[in-house]
Design a protein around this nucleic acid. Structure first.
Lengths: 120, 120, 120, 120
DNA sequence: TTTT
DNA sequence: TTTT
């Protein structure tokens, strides 16, 4: 049975994306994305709660991120959830859940806007 | 700025859900959900890849899970991503990403079907 | 500026799909899909409300529909909204909104299940 | 069987929203929303295709639209599809499909931005 | 016109 | 750990 594994986020980048070029000239971009929601407590007081998401983009989407995304950029992102694991020096297993991006929309890009280059 | 944090899954429970009743008679259900996709490699060979997701349901949805979901059940689940952390005995920080369910559809429930009780 | 145009439905076919083969051997399938929701009125009485959607599938998805979908089938469908128009004999313009399917999951397909052939 | 009926749009308003106040002081807002996508033809030429959607907002969301949305505004909208019908003077039945908004995000609102009042 |  |  096939299934559905889909994530939809609208939020802001916490930092500039980190770009790596792998063997075969394949680009990978990673960044944290913050999604915020506001809610009211029982006393009617408004609060903001923020969730952070680890995003990974491959190939063309990574190149888009390198060219157009910076700390603070507002994006729409669609992708799938993947959880991988590694074992630390003490032999403890760690799990890392990432969103592998499949569609990206830049929501605050001004046409022709000049961007500062990414730190190397 | 408010954002969007939304997950949509269709998949099968790996085991019976674990139910806990917290203070104030609040029910919580946890289970792993498998989403599978099939793809073809360069040789045209079909492969199945499965992702596992940690799902948490609260209150009414947890009671639904207790009453109607079992190992193997096929469900549609909508929710939001939350990542929490804890420090292990060696002082290493671990991150855990869960999907907090907000809408649930049972896709293989037969009307009047008799379910085995959950293990205590 | 690019945008997002996405529809997600889970529901049942009202009738068998209608299949047409166009020039160039391109298959098109059309069917109505019912999505139901239950709600409670102010008196606590449960009601069911049903919406009907016009679905259009092209090529491979149309062939899937021909082979595996029948009246009553339960499906997950993802697609985009398209509104087209035509003028009737009295010169009045009519608008028709359809969902062009992009992803289809059969949710009640039994493996190896034998299906009655579609009426010609 | 309950189902899923969900629409997700990101696009721009074609005109200022039309606001009506019904009996019981219930606000309704209506507007057309354009979603655009770019694609390349076989010759590699880029084209833009636009779809128009009829959006209806009720109560609090209608008041939000009145206060903050204008022609050209960029919004994220989630809602459900509803198709209603009416018969014209010639006795022909017309169908109208609308998106009943359930969640709205303003994607280009500057904090404190001054908006021109809606035409009465 | 579907389904529970 | 699921399912087809």
């Amino acid at each position: 049975m096939r299934g559905i594994n889909k994530v939809t986020l609208i939020g802001n980048l916490g930092k500039d994306p980190e770009i790596n070029i792998l063997d075969g000239n394949v680009a990978v971009a990673k960044f944290s994305l913050a999604t915020s929601e506001t809610y009211r407590d029982k006393a009617g007081q408004a609060h903001t709660s923020t969730d952070w998401h680890s995003v990974v983009l491959w190939r063309g989407l990574a190149e888009l991120a390198q060219a157009y995304l910076r700390k603070g950029s507002l994006v729409y992102l669609e992708g799938k959830l993947k959880t991988r694991h590694y074992d630390d020096a003490a032999g403890q297993r760690h799990y890392v859940t990432e969103i592998i991006g499949e569609q990206l929309l830049m929501l605050d890009k001004k046409p022709g806007e000049q961007l500062s280059p990414l730190a190397p």
